[in-house]
Amino acid sequence: MTALNGVTAGFRTGSFTAVMGPSGSGKSTLLHCAAGLDRPTSGRVFIDGTELTATTDTAMTKFRRRRVGFVFQDYNLLPSLTVEQNVVLPLRLAGRRADRARCRTVLTQLGLGDRRDDRPEKLSGGQRQRVAVARALLTEPAVIFADEPTGALDLRSAREVLTLLRAVVHDHGRTVVMVTHDPAAASYADSVLFLADGRLAGALSAPTPDAVAERLAHLGEVAA
């Protein structure tokens, strides 16, 4: 079975792109291949001018730790660590010195300056996801990949996280690629890339929830 078939996509620096499609359309596979989590059986992946698919697995891991940020639906926070310890963990794993001052600055910017010594269990879902965003930002990555980042959040928390991701792009010049199933979440992006049956099925600029929902409803026709 082919998860992705002939997909070619580029994500402009300083842009926010949502990736959408039915279950099994290849969204997560695209995200994992683009981020260097999975190695495609064919094709090439470039991030910030570096061809990931031309490197060894060890080199790919090192590159990810330096130049790629991740935000996942289940936060991926370690319950035994404080907020600050969770945020600096990728740096420690990469053997880099953790800049505590910068960490605290980022947490303060995200409204978590007074929670840095708390453990995740004391935080709301939205606050945990903001910790995950802070962790992704701390390494100053070339791109941040987000896989259903609002899937486990209530409506208010989801809006806060999406507004934050948009600010990461427009205020800080980062590139964000987000997989989502929610047309309202996709409307926060600059553009939407649609997949169906492992193939590209169109794109939409300046998306609105209604326009995204309509395109999803007719995705089979678009793909054909």
Score class of each variant (00 low, 15 high):
Glu121Trp: 14
Pro207Ser: 10
Ser23Leu: 00
Glu140Cys: 10
Val169Tyr: 14
Leu107Gln: 05
His181Ser: 14
Ala189Gly: 07
Leu112Trp: 04
Glu121Ala: 15
Gly6Cys: 08
Asp57Ala: 15
Ser23Ile: 11
Arg96Ala: 12
Ser205Tyr: 13
His32Cys: 06
Val179Thr: 01
Thr55Cys: 13
Arg64Ala: 04
Ala34Met: 13
Ser23Lys: 01
Gly26Asp: 01
Gly43Pro: 09
Thr175Glu: 01
Gln85Ile: 13
Ala224Asp: 06
Phe63Tyr: 09
Gly126Asn: 10
Arg65Gln: 08
Leu77Glu: 03
Leu200Asn: 03
Asp99Tyr: 10
Pro207His: 08
Val88Ile: 12
His218Lys: 10
Ala34Val: 04
Arg65Ala: 12
His170Ala: 06
Gly202Ala: 13
Leu200Gly: 12
Asn86Glu: 13
Ala134Glu: 00
Glu160Gln: 12
Leu200Ser: 03
Arg128Leu: 07
Leu195Trp: 08
Arg215Met: 07
Asp74Thr: 13
Leu107Arg: 12
Arg128Gly: 04
Ser80Pro: 06
Gly24Ala: 00
Arg96Phe: 08
Ala142Gly: 08
Arg215Trp: 14
Leu89Ile: 12
Thr175Lys: 02
Ala203Glu: 15
Pro207Thr: 11
Phe145His: 00
Thr53Leu: 02
Thr108Asn: 14
Asp57Asn: 06
Gly21Ala: 01
Leu219Ala: 09
Thr55Arg: 15
Thr108Ser: 15
Val133Ser: 03
Ala186His: 04
Leu193Lys: 05
Ala59Ile: 03
Gly26Lys: 02
Leu107Asp: 04
Gly125Phe: 12
Pro141Tyr: 05
Asp197Tyr: 11
Gly43Glu: 07
Ser191Asp: 06
Gly202Trp: 14
Gly151Val: 08
Gly36Thr: 00
Arg67Asn: 09
Cys103Thr: 11
Arg135Cys: 08
Leu4Thr: 02
Thr82Gln: 01
Gly14Ile: 06
Ala54Trp: 07
Val169Trp: 11
Arg12His: 04
Ala167Met: 07
Gly220Asn: 08
Phe72Ser: 07
Ala217Thr: 03
Val45Arg: 08
Arg92Pro: 06
Asp38Thr: 03
Met178Ala: 04
Leu31Lys: 01
Arg100Asp: 04
Lys122Ala: 14
Asp117Tyr: 12
Val192Pro: 01
Leu37Ser: 01
Arg97His: 13
Ala94Met: 02
Val133Arg: 05
Val161Asn: 08
Gly220Met: 14
Thr8Ser: 13
Val19Met: 05
Pro22Val: 00
Gly198Tyr: 09
Leu4Cys: 06
Ala152Val: 07
Arg135Asp: 04
Glu84Pro: 06
Cys103Phe: 02
Pro40Gly: 05
Arg39Cys: 05
His32Asp: 13
Asp38Asn: 09
Thr55Asp: 01
